[in-house]
Simulated scan of single mutants.
Amino acid sequence: MKKLIFAIGVIILLLFAVTVFVPPYIEEQRNPVKSAPPYSVSPEAQALYDRLDFISDLHCDALLWGRNLRKRGDRGHVDFPRMREANVGLEMFTIVSKSPAGQNMKSNSADAFDNITPLTIAKGDPPSNWFSLINRTLAQAENLHKFIEKEEGQVIFVKDRTDLEQLISARKKDPSVVGAMLGIEGAHALEGELDNLDKVYEAGIRMIGPTHFFDNKLGGSAHGENGAGLTAFGKEVIQRMNELNIFIDLAHCSPAIVDDVLKMTTKPVMVSHIGVRAVLDSQRNLTDEQIKRIAANGGIIGIAFFDMAVGEPELEGIIESMKHVRDLVGIEYIALGSDYDGAVEVPFDITGLPLIVEGLMNAGFSEADIKAIMGENVKRFFLKNLDQ
């Protein structure tokens, strides 16, 4: 009996050690920052940054790693304290439920080993989440809600226009109030069940990308194997998303899905984190024709911060990508789409956003244009398109 008790104790200690040490180690390895904070810019750039009324980012995967977003982290890219330090008013927290081993830009199999399964177990999630994509998704959404509840009004969860208006009003009185939205990276999270779309809507999710790094029941990924457009089920999901007013995120979709969605959607689309082929010729990036069609749809394009979207050096690529979209369709379609905490190496964490302002100033962008890019476009887009 003593040996059994000892063995059980050892197992418990090992499980505790795995939960405490493994997820932070994985995150530190997967989300490096090329240049550590603090960051400095010219006095003129900092002054302009300090005048910005509303800063927003359209894509962050911080919920995946199990980190407490209420505490300032020494790893990763985003949390509530760093949002406040950077004066960021609104962050779109996106949920990753599955990611194929060997993930790359060109081709991934849907049957490849899932990287998120061991991470889910290591984080100490209950067994109900270990092999269920929808349960993982709802659990990450619930974790964000718990963080927000403990903030006692200092973080506002935005699911409709009224919430956004409340956030804008609250920040005028207290800039330390920040906002959070929820999205899903890849509708494989629905597990092929249309009813699950209503479940994630009830959880507050307002943006979903049909595909992520592999093909699924909705159709083809930009990084998948078949390059297909929307399946019959995919069209059902898009139609229901329109009915619920969940924004469609085209960031990882095959060109055929981009085409199909823009033909059938009755709502403006989003591209939460992307680059442009005119700057970096990558299969995940937008062509000029796609950019024009997204603009004609009234959509918005978040420019990503990592090298496989914008090239190297990243800051130069970010600015060039924004300049290209501006010159092609206009300033009003550009937003920040960092892909922070998305298993990518970035040049700076969220407290380094003044570097983008300095880069835009050096490239000749006006103050009005910089304000639009840094968040006013997102604010306008959501005020216009969110449900009341």
Rank of each mutant, 00 (worst) to 15 (best):
I331S: 10
I303V: 14
R82V: 02
N108K: 02
T120D: 06
K2L: 11
D259W: 03
R380L: 03
D79M: 04
L218K: 02
N115L: 15
Y340P: 08
G234K: 02
F233R: 15
F157T: 03
I303S: 00
L63T: 00
Q166M: 15
Y340A: 13
D174K: 05
H324E: 03
V155K: 12
G209K: 08
D195A: 13
H188E: 15
L262Q: 10
R72N: 05
P81C: 02
A278Y: 12
N297G: 04
S99R: 10
G102I: 11
K3Q: 13
E345F: 13
P175S: 07
N226P: 15
E149V: 12
H59D: 15
D160C: 13
I334A: 08
V33N: 12
D163S: 10
N377Q: 00
E28L: 00
A256W: 06
L119K: 02
R206P: 01
A170W: 03
F214L: 09
A251Q: 03
V237K: 05
A180W: 00
E312K: 14
D259R: 13
A372E: 08
A139N: 13
Q46W: 09
D61Q: 07
D61E: 11
R75I: 10
E149F: 02
K3W: 15
I5Y: 11
M270G: 07
N143H: 10
L58M: 11
A368V: 14
N129I: 01
R67H: 07
A62K: 04
K123W: 12
L286V: 11
E142F: 07
S128A: 13
I116M: 04
K235Q: 10
I350V: 06
K123L: 15
I291E: 08
L90T: 03
F157C: 14
D79F: 09
Q46K: 03
D198M: 01
F21G: 05
K323W: 14
T162V: 09
V155T: 02
R284K: 11
L69G: 07
V271F: 03
L13H: 12
V88Y: 04
A180S: 14
L15S: 12
R84T: 14
F113E: 09
P23I: 05
L386W: 01
G227I: 01
E91N: 06
L63C: 04
A7S: 14
D215C: 04
F305Y: 02
L355S: 05
E27Q: 15
Q154V: 10
E289T: 08
G317A: 00
I356A: 02
A139Q: 12
N129Q: 01
G102N: 04
F157M: 12
I294V: 14
G89T: 12
I95V: 10
P37D: 09
P126A: 04
L138M: 15
I184F: 09
V237A: 14
L197P: 07
I168F: 08
P32V: 04
V276T: 09
L63V: 06
